[in-house]
């Protein structure tokens, strides 16, 4: 019998520190599978954010750089401009990208920076235990919206893909989810396309990945997948927002 599924080479053989059922782990594997399939581990540099995945530099076999909160796109810009023939990706959460790092992601996108951003949206701050994120849903209870997020107090959730799609520098924008096998496979296709867009030098690429946070949502991993389907999908429409038919 042949092995048909095993840990990708680009993913280091170390246990992940994430909570049981946290879908960050799936994202790490998908990125690593794509890096393996494109054969770019030796020429890729990844940028870790601040958040639950602040030290995911421990998990990827390519060179990794840790960036201050929200600044990964700027750090990646510095790397990419210094090494035009390499591949650069940022791994960011919703607080990192859509709160403190909004200016950096918007300007990296509008500059058409040839980097790929993997944006994990789980509608909450995980690392710091459950605060409201820019993508927290209306009425969603968090440690800083204990009575539920209210628009007049806390404003509205940010739709990053739609926002960035208005910027001409962007080449590929897709929102995917991980709540079932079909969607996980779609997510991988989108991540692969995003990296291919970068390799083809076509501009900025981003994949927003709807994800779960069982611990801070106060749900077990199975309930969390269900909560994502029932609550996040209606607000965050899946699909491609840019570059669907882009030749790479």
């Amino acid at each position: 019998m042949a092995t048909v599924f095993k840990k990708p080479h680009a993913l280091r053989d170390v246990p992940l520190h994430y909570c049981p059922g946290c879908t960050h782990g799936i994202v790490h594997r998908l990125i690593s599978e794509v890096i393996d399939e494109l054969g770019i581990e030796g020429s890729t540099i990844g940028v870790s954010p601040v958040g639950c995945t602040y030290n995911n530099y421990l998990y990827f076999n390519c060179d990794m750089v840790q960036a201050s909160h929200g600044r990964a796109p700027a750090v990646a810009t510095g790397i990419r401009r210094a090494l035009p023939d390499k591949t650069v990706f940022t791994y960011q959460g919703d607080g990192d990208l859509a709160a403190i790092g909004t200016a950096e992601i918007v300007h990296a996108a509008t500059r058409g920076e040839k980097i790929t951003t993997i944006f994990v949206n789980n509608a909450i701050y995980g690392m710091t235990s459950g605060q409201m994120a820019p993508t927290t849903l209306l009425n969603q209870v968090t440690t800083t919206t204990p009575y539920g997020r209210k628009a007049d107090l806390h404003g509205f959730p940010i739709h990053v893909c739609e926002m960035l799609a208005t910027l001409e520098g962007t080449a590929f924008i897709e929102r995917v989810s991980l709540h079932d096998i079909k969607n996980i496979n779609n997510a991988k296709k989108a991540i692969k396309k995003a990296f291919e867009v970068q390799l083809a030098g076509k501009g900025f690429s981003i994949v927003e990945i709807l994800s779960t946070c069982p611990s801070n949502w106060g749900l077990n991993p199975l309930e969390a997948m269900k909560w994502l389907q029932e609550n996040m999908l209606p607000v965050y429409q899946l699909g491609n927002f840019k570059g669907k038919d882009l030749e790479v």
Binding site: I45, S68, V75, G78, R80, R81, A82, E104
Partner: peptide, 9 residues
């Protein structure tokens, strides 16, 4: 932070 990134290389 761009300086930080470039310096890393």
């Amino acid at each position: 932070n761009m300086v930080y990134g470039a310096a890393c290389t």
